[in-house]
Computed example of a mutant assay.
Amino acid sequence: MAWKQDRAEIKRLMAARPDPDGKKNCDSQEAKAVNDQLNRKLAEQPVWRRGRFLYES
């Protein structure tokens, strides 16, 4: 099941973000790379699944 692998990858990427809430204005190369990879992975998901990742508590 590919969606389970995608879900695990997205959760891993979300945990790996150096500045998850954006309050520290972290513009490092690492932060940009992780955010780009996360955005690419989220864009591959259907809209309803994307919202679930972004807004679940």
Rank of each mutant, 00 (worst) to 15 (best):
N39E: 13
R12T: 11
E56P: 00
A43M: 00
M14V: 05
D6Y: 05
E30Y: 02
R12N: 11
A2F: 07
Q37G: 00
A43G: 14
V47K: 01
P46R: 12
G51R: 01
W48N: 00
R49E: 11
G22N: 03
A31L: 06
A8L: 15
D36A: 11
Q37F: 07
L42H: 06
R52D: 02
D36H: 13
A43I: 04
I10Y: 00
A15C: 08
K24A: 09
P18V: 03
P20F: 06
Y55F: 14
R12Q: 10
L38I: 11
R40A: 14
K32Q: 11
M14H: 05
M14R: 07
D27M: 03
Q37C: 06
L13V: 08
Q5Y: 15
R17V: 14
M1D: 07
P46M: 06
E9P: 08
R52E: 09
S57M: 07
M1C: 12
L38F: 00
A15G: 10
R12G: 10
K24N: 03
R17A: 11
S57W: 12
A16F: 02
C26G: 08
Q37L: 10
N39I: 01
R40M: 15
L38H: 11
W3N: 12
K32S: 12
K23E: 07
P20D: 04
P46G: 08
W3F: 15
L42D: 09
R50G: 03
E44C: 13
I10L: 13
N35A: 10
I10S: 06
G51M: 02
A33P: 04
R49K: 11
L13G: 01
P46T: 03
F53T: 05
K41Q: 14
P20K: 01
K23A: 06
R12A: 11
S28H: 02
L38Q: 09
L42S: 10
L38P: 04
K24M: 08
E44G: 15
E44N: 14
A2N: 15
Q5L: 13
A31S: 02
W3Q: 13
Q37I: 09
L13P: 08
W3V: 14
E30Q: 04
W3D: 01
L42C: 12
V47Q: 07
Q37E: 08
E30P: 02
M14I: 02
F53I: 06
M1F: 15
E9Q: 15
L54D: 01
D6H: 08
R49H: 09
K41G: 03
Q45K: 10
E44K: 12
R7Y: 14
G22R: 05
P18I: 05
L42K: 04
W3P: 12
L38A: 06
R52I: 01
A31E: 09
L42M: 11
Q29S: 14
R7W: 12
G22H: 03
S28V: 06
Q45A: 02
K32I: 14
R40S: 08
N39S: 15
K24V: 08
C26T: 01
P18Y: 04
K32Y: 11
E9W: 02
A43Q: 12
